[in-house]
Write a protein that binds this DNA or RNA. Structure first.
Length: 976
RNA sequence: AACCCCUUAGCCCAAUCGGCAGAGGCACUUGUCUUAGAAACAAGAUAGUGUAAGUUCGAAUCUUACAGGGGCUACCA
């Protein structure tokens, strides 16, 4: 009888659940290890085989670390707020909480059947009020803090207020809005409540702000920069436009330097760190003010235009100034003569979508405003242009044009016939293109003529600072993050508005739960969905809009009695709940803190974090930001929350195709070899079509049609299943090759519409969870993207059966013996122990599988069924194939459930020691002979023997030996 | 356009410090078993590492250029 995986796996999963085998408690006597998966958004489609890839890897590490004596925290939860559930709610009217609940149930069922060793008692859901109470709480802390540059950390706003009232803001070195004015303590103390609160908003780490945002009409909400891809929304692919709106923002820029510097501390992939560095985009340069020479409107024309440049040394090469067409100062810099042209250009720019703009990057466009600025270094008049290659959102939205040194400026200058002045003697070919070299000495450059780059920059910066018209400056690409979504299914912001200014509710009033609404759409007046909630108002005595634990039970809040202050109508974005969840797992049911200090100080930070690289500039950046903030507050001990991070590669779909012959009614098959056609012979039936096998398709004109990969085996179509698959194929006919219908193949994204989705449920049923786990790891290196191909899974299945056969013979008799192992058996075992351990330590999951296969093959060859060997083998296997390992472990007489916490086998090098080593002897790099020497033979002795060797002599053909290189236990190379 | 990763047998992949290119799996071939097929078991065949150059006693591994595939960003002044 064969191994009955269905029964055995079922049994152990039930055992683990009943006995809470993987429940974890704080245990200071053991070293801790925290293995975390990026928690999923529970979508309606359930899991496909790509999802568990990372989870399997992390589970293997979790199980391995337990065997190595660590106290392992390995939890799972759900990022359960989000757009899809809400979109579904809009369509069906069903509360997102209900669909979310159902989807989570499916996820849990699917996850459990793969045999993960999660401590389910620590599960979290971001949409649970008990969880988002603390998301809201962290938001409140952000509101109550500012970033002090001297202390280089977040400090309390209340301390700032004290400072203001004592000595104004001049001596405060804090991160704040650009337009923050200076004031004295007297001025501060004279300010009204309204003025003071408005001023403080310029410092708070989260604040409502009127800013240009990515507005997505299709989704009815704003989006963060990382949620917009190629000018359309990441979710749904709707167009995105720029719109000015009042939004909550997070002052993440305050942490820009620490976010960059912290990357040096963590063991993440270079590409991921690069992505974050690029996203933050720190560039060092200088700001320079150019005085405006053409004053058109005394009130509104700016006195100067400030630019940021990384190449202040090129300032003598400036031949024009460009400002972004979106800037508010544009009309006041436009002369009457140019007004028409400028208006037209501004209109044209506004009419173009992000997509148009991106696709026309190469085209030069722009218009002259008619006015000028003065170059402060040579007092030359410089014309001001508008051009859309300058972005309003970066720096000051203005750029000094240096055509000899910058290709974009060169293109612009050439197009508008502006002078191109060389500034370095090393610049080449500037008639045909810009040369951005820093080599050589400056020419045409006033005070820096004859100097070199480094010195010139110093001289110029000094001049700027002395004259008060500029200074050295560090500019970031990173923007403060928009933190509002005009959606329903997210965390309510625990703030209300009084006189248009935000105030927090009391901590004791948390959580502010989502109210019941009738429809999940914006209101008639365009307010977010929460605008529909009755009584969504705060009154200090009885906060309204609250629903108790059952958020969606339907009882509405007491009707608002008219009083109170309106709550914020936006909700928090998807990344709010995911920016701190790893702490909640540590103490998931704490009602007085987001997690106890005891648990945080024990578990500290994540030791291994596994998830997709698509979160590089979203979740992983925001999480680092919140973590640093919590560290500043002294609430968490580590600056970086995830020390080691692995991005698992995406599992792509492998689509199969059938080829329908065009224009081939079934009756017209006269010319085709009839014997090749398998037919149910219903010639006039309701169609069905004629399908040609992939190898023969070029003889016909065909239409490829996606076919469900689940009815294809090794690219051979199951014809009966195909006919049953879709009604219109009932009468299909086939042109076969070698008696088979072979399907075509293509690698694409895994998606329902391509019929290439492979469901893990089916595989667990067909071959078992252990085989699935083993096979997913065996596919290749974890980080690498790879197509899913079920074909090879038989090999993993066979492995499981082979292991079983080491224990039971054909007659189903247990053949395990208590005899002492032989040296050969011990060598096989210890080779595997060494390799499994080394490979797991370096996260080489795929090679461990083949190591186990080799070990089992070798033990099979040795006909080894000795208990002492098999016991260790079972432990080695257990992280990968926990079910069969548990079964065999008890068969060997051990107590059920104890294998997870036993000791990993100890490698003993003694068993691997060989008396001799067979040296390959190469002559000029080519192997010509093999000679055996004792392993401890001295290189000099080996060389002496090799020099005398007959085969070597023969190859020398009388020539001199120049050198003999002996690499102990590797190779000998004779050079002649 | 920049940056990062990848390219080894028909396919998926090993080769950890530069030291005999092959461990494992799929597919394939042959055999054992079988009425037959499948399964199982056993045996076997297959590449010289994308291309070109360089460094080295020695290169899949290091360097440079090019080609192909993938990812990420996209006028960042």
């Amino acid at each position: 009888m064969e191994y009955n995986y269905r029964e055995v796996e079922q049994k152990w999963r039930a055992f683990w659940e009943e006995n809470e085998t993987f429940k974890t408690e704080i245990n200071p006597s053991k070293p801790k290890y925290y293995v975390l998966d990026m928690f999923p958004y529970p979508s309606g489609a359930g899991l496909h085989v790509g999802h568990p890839l990372g989870y399997i890897a992390s589970d293997i590490i979790a199980r391995y670390k337990r065997l190595k004596g660590f106290n392992v925290l390995h939890p799972m939860g759900f990022d359960s707020f989000g757009l899809p559930a809400e979109q579904y709610a809009i369509q069906t009217g069903q509360h997102p909480a209900i669909t979310t609940e159902e989807n989570i149930a499916t996820y849990i069922r699917q996850l459990k059947q793969i045999g993960f060793s999660y401590d389910w008692s620590k599960e979290v859901r971001t949409s649970d009020a008990k969880y988002y109470k603390w998301t809201q709480w962290i938001f409140m802390q952000l509101f109550n803090h500012y970033y002090d540059k001297d202390a280089n950390k977040a400090l309390k706003i209340s301390d700032l207020v004290v400072h203001f009232s004592e000595s104004g803001n001049k001596s405060v070195n804090a991160v704040c809005d650009e337009d923050t004015p200076n004031f004295t303590s007297e001025e501060w103390n004279r300010m009204s409540e309204y003025e003071q609160q408005s001023m403080l908003l310029k410092y708070r780490l989260t604040y409502p702000d009127e800013s240009v945002v990515n507005w997505c009409p299709g989704l009815g909400t704003v989006l963060a920069n990382d949620e917009v891809k190629d000018g359309v929304s990441e979710r749904g692919g709707f167009p995105v436009e720029q719109k000015k709106m009042k939004q909550w923002a997070m002052r993440i820029t305050a942490y820009a330097d620490r976010l960059i510097d912290g990357l040096n501390e963590v063991d993440w992939s270079d590409s991921l760190k690069d992505q974050q560095r690029n996203w933050i985009g720190r560039s060092t340069g200088a700001s320079v003010r150019f005085a405006v020479d053409t004053i058109l409107d005394k009130e509104n024309t700016p006195q100067f235009i400030e630019v940021f440049t990384t190449r202040v040394d090129t300032i003598y090469g400036v031949s024009f100034m460009v400002i972004a067409p979106e800037l508010e100062s544009v009309p006041f810099l436009t002369t009457p003569e140019q007004k028409e042209a400028v208006d037209e250009y501004v209109k044209w720019v506004a009419s173009r979508s992000e997509l148009d703009r991106m696709s026309e990057v190469k085209k030069v466009s722009g218009v002259f405003t008619g006015s000028y600025v003065i170059n402060p270094f040579n007092n030359e008049k410089v014309p001001i242009y508008l051009a859309d290659y300058v972005l309003a959102g970066y720096g000051t939205g203005a750029v000094m044009g240096v055509p000899s040194g910058d290709q974009r400026d060169w293109n612009f200058a050439t197009h508008f016939n502006l002078p191109i002045v060389p500034i370095l003697d090393a610049q080449k070919d500037i008639d045909t293109q810009a040369d951005n070299t820093k080599e050589g000495k400056y020419i045409n450059s006033g005070m820096i003529n004859g100097l070199e780059y480094k010195e010139a920059t110093k001289v110029l910066t000094q001049f700027l600072e002395e004259k008060g018209i500029g200074k050295g400056k560090i500019q970031y690409r990173l923007r403060n993050a928009v933190f509002s979504r005009q959606r329903y299914w997210g965390e309510p912001v625990p703030a209300y508005f009084k006189d248009g200014l935000p105030y927090l509710i009391k901590e004791s009033e948390l959580p502010l739960t989502l109210p019941v609404i009738d429809k999940y759409l914006p209101t008639e007046t365009g307010e977010p969905p929460l605008g529909r909630a009755e009584g969504w108002m705060y009154s200090p005595l009885t906060p309204r809009g609250r629903i108790s634990d059952s958020q969606f039970a339907g009882e509405s809040s007491p009707p608002g009695g008219g009083g109170g202050y309106p709550y914020e109508l936006s909700t928090m974005p998807g990344w709010a709940g995911s920016s701190w969840y790893w702490y909640r797992y540590m103490d998931a049911h704490n009602e007085t803190e987001f997690a106890s200090q005891e648990s945080i100080n024990y578990w500290k930070a994540v030791d291994l974090y596994i998830g997709g690289s698509e979160h590089a500039t979203g979740h992983l950046l925001y999480s680092r930001f919140w973590n640093k903030f919590l560290k500043d507050l002294g609430l968490v001990p580590e600056e970086e929350f995830a020390k080691k991070l692995i991005n698992q590669g995406m599992i792509q779909g492998r689509s199969n195709f059938v080829y329908r012959v065009k224009n081939s009614p079934l009756t017209s098959r006269g010319g085709i070899l009839d014997s090749n056609i398998e037919s149910e012979s219903s010639p006039s039936g309701g169609g069905g079509g004629l399908f040609v096998s992939a190898g023969l398709r070029h003889d016909y004109e065909t239409t490829p049609i996606h076919v469900d990969v689940n009815i294809v085996n090794n690219d051979v179509l199951d014809i009966e299943a195909f006919k049953a698959w879709r009604e219109d194929f009932v009468n299909a006919e086939f042109i076969l090759e070698d008696g088979k219908y072979v399907c075509g193949v293509e690698v694409e994204k895994m998606s329902k519409s391509k019929y290439n989705v492979v469901n893990p449920d089916i595989l667990v049923d067909k071959v078992g969870a252990d085989t699935l786990r083993l096979y997913e790891m065996f596919l290749g290196p974890l980080e690498q993207a790879k197509p899913w191909n079920t074909n090879g899974i038989d090999g993993s299945f066979r492995f499981i059966k082979k292991v079983w056969r080491l224990f039971y013979d054909d007659q189903d008799t247990l053949k395990v013996k208590d005899e002492a192992p032989t040296p050969a058996e011990l060598k096989v075992l210890h080779t595997a122990i060494k390799k499994v351990e080394e490979d797991l330590e370096r996260y080489s999951f795929n090679t461990v599988v083949s190591t186990l296969m080799i070990c089992v093959n070798d033990l099979g060859t040795l006909k080894c069924s000795k208990k002492a060997i098999l016991r260790e083998l079972v432990i080695l296997m257990s992280p990968y194939t926990p079910h069969i390992a548990e079964e065999l472990w008890t068969i060997l007489g051990n107590e059920a459930g104890t294998i997870s916490y036993t000791n990993f086998p100890t490698f003993n090098p003694v068993y691997l020691v060989e008396a001799n080593f067979e040296y390959p002897i190469s002559i000029n790099g080519k192997v010509r002979a093999n000679l055996s020497f004792p392993t401890d033979a001295l290189p000099a002795d080996i060389e002496a023997v090799v020099r005398e060797n007959e085969i070597v002599m023969k190859w020398l053909e009388g020539k001199e030996i120049k050198k003999v290189i002996v690499v102990p236990k590797r190779i000998v190379n004779v050079v002649m």
